[in-house]
Design a protein around this nucleic acid. Structure first.
Lengths: 189, 189
DNA sequence: GAATTCATGTAACTTGTTACATGATTTA
DNA sequence: TAAATCATGTAACAAGTTACATGAATTC
C-alpha cells in the first residue's frame, strides 16, 4: 500500500488537482493515512509516467494554473487490482512515538509524564470534536459526487477513529491515576 | 523519532547483539514500533559511526560470532536529549491500509468485506492472547535486568494495546452488523 | 529430509519528510 | 502590514522494505 493507491481511489470519484487532493485528504482519510503536498505532486508525476493518470490545464487569472488530473483506464485497472489483493496481515505496523516514550517512562520525571499524558488527552479530545466537522464534509461531499453509498463506509471509519480516541482517553486517565497512586505509596514508605 | 532512539534505549538496559534486539523487539515494543533485522544492523552501524555505541566480538563455535553492542556515554547523552524533547503533536500519523480499503468499501463485494472484517477480528483476538505471553516475558525480563520499575510502564502499554484491540473488535462486529442490515433492507425494496 | 533457529550483513529500492523557491490575492 | 490561501513544484535527506547471500546446528 502506498499513497499512489489512495490517489487513484480519490481520482476514481472525480478529477482533482494535487492541491484539491491535499485539502480533501486533510479532512477525510487523514485519520488513517496522511500525505505531504510534495509527496502528492511527486506521486502524481509517477502515476502519469505509468499512464495511470492524465491531466489538463485549467488556466486561471492572477494565480497559478490548475493542473487537473484524471484517472485513465490503466489507472482504474491498477486500482482494482490493488483492491482485490488484501494483504496477509490486516493490521499494519504501528509506529507510535508517544508509546515508545512511555516505554522508557522510568527515565522521565513523573510530573512530566503526567503533564504529557494530560496533553495527550487534550489532543484526543480535539480530534473527537473535529470528527463532527468531518462528518459534515463527508455528507456534503458524498452528495456532490452523487455517491451516497460511500457515506456508509466513511462513517464506519469515523466511528472507528472515534471509539479508538475514546479508548485512548480512558487509558490515559487510568494511567495518570496509576502513576499518582504509586507516587503516594512511595511517599508512605 | 527513529529506530535509532529505540535501539539506544534498549542498549541502556544491557548490551545486546542485533539478533537479540530483533527477538526482544518482536515481543515487546513490536505493538507500537517494529523493525526489520536489516534495518537494525544498518542503524547499529550508523550509531557506531556516530560514536553512540561500541561493540566487542563474542566468538562462538559452529555458528557466526556474536557482535555484542553496548551504549557509550555519547549514546546515553543522545538518548536523554531525545527523551527530553516531546514532539509538538503527540499522536503520530497513522498509516493503516485496512482502513483505506474500508474507505473504498463500496468497490468491494459485501460478502468479501464481511469476510475480511471477520478475519480482522480473528487477528485482533490472536493479538490479545499474545499479550498474556508478552506479559510474562516482560516480567521475567524486568527481573533479569533488575529494573522493577520498568514493569509498570510496560504494563501500561500492554493495557493500552489490549483496550484498543478490544475496541477494534467491537467496532468490526458492529460494522458487520451494519453491512448485513443494509443488505436486508435492500432486498426488501 | 525439511524447516526452523542462530547469526551476520549488503544492495537496491520505495516511501515519507523537510527545506527551499515563486508569487499574486485575500483576509485579519 | 502581516499572515493565510491558492497553486505549482524540486532537491536533499531520512527511514523503512525486500531481495539476496552464507552456512552450521537443531528440531520436527
Amino acid at each position: 500500500m502506498s499513497l499512489q493507491h489512495a490517489i487513484l481511489g480519490l481520482l476514481s470519484y472525480e478529477p482533482m488537482s494535487g492541491y484539491d487532493m491535499k485539502s480533501f485528504l486533510d479532512n477525510s482519510i487523514n485519520f488513517f493515512w496522511s500525505a505531504q503536498l510534495s509527496q502528492i505532486y511527486r506521486d502524481l508525476g509517477t502515476l502519469e509516467k505509468k499512464g495511470c493518470v492524465s491531466f489538463h490545464i485549467d488556466a486561471q487569472e492572477g494565480r497559478p494554473d490548475r493542473k487537473v488530473y484524471q484517472i485513465t483506464p490503466e489507472g482504474e485497472k491498477a486500482f482494482h487490482d490493488w483492491l482485490q489483493k488484501f494483504p496477509t496481515a490486516l493490521s499494519s505496523a504501528v509506529r507510535d512515538e508517544f508509546s515508545v516514550r512511555i516505554f522508557f517512562g522510568s527515565r522521565i520525571p513523573k510530573e512530566e509524564l503526567g503533564f504529557q499524558l494530560r496533553r495527550f488527552i487534550k489532543e484526543q479530545q480535539e480530534q473527537i470534536s473535529s470528527f463532527a466537522y468531518v462528518k459534515k464534509v463527508v455528507e456534503s461531499y458524498s452528495k456532490s459526487i452523487s455517491a451516497p453509498e460511500e457515506e456508509l463506509y466513511w462513517k464506519l471509519l469515523l466511528n472507528r477513529s472515534n471509539s479508538v480516541a475514546q479508548t485512548l482517553i480512558k487509558w490515559a486517565e487510568e494511567s495518570i491515576q496509576e502513576l499518582e497512586n504509586i507516587d503516594k505509596d512511595q511517599r508512605k514508605d
